[in-house]
């Protein structure tokens, strides 16, 4: 049974790495946010799988549940932070932040 979990963990990790490319190079700010959100969801699945792999799922599932709730709050918070700046200005989204 362990081999199933190991393979799934590897698949999810590869998916996370692929999405990380979008987070780093995403042309717009929202793309990066989307990538972070996707990685968060994949992290929850990863936690559940690692819990079963480590043979004490209860411990990891608690973390996964907390992560699911906090991930949502984080996404809403960042969106709220940028909401006023984004409004009606696609350029604010597509242009890179002045450093």
């Amino acid at each position: 049974m362990d081999i199933v979990y190991v393979v799934s963990v590897v698949v999810v990790l590869v998916g996370m790495l692929a999405v990380l490319k979008r987070v780093i190079s995403g042309p717009t700010l929202l793309d990066r946010l989307l990538g972070v959100n996707v990685i968060g969801t994949k992290t929850i699945v990863l936690l559940a799988l690692i819990g079963f792999l480590a043979d004490r799922p209860g411990f990891f599932l608690d973390i996964a549940l907390a992560y699911a709730l906090i991930n949502f709050i984080a996404t809403i918070a960042v969106l709220r932070h940028f909401e006023a700046r984004f409004r009606g200005r696609a350029s604010a989204v597509t242009e890179e932040e002045p450093s």
Partner: peptide, 9 residues
């Protein structure tokens, strides 16, 4: 965090 969520929304 629940209060943060309420304040945000």
């Amino acid at each position: 965090a629940s209060f943060v969520l309420l304040a945000l929304a």
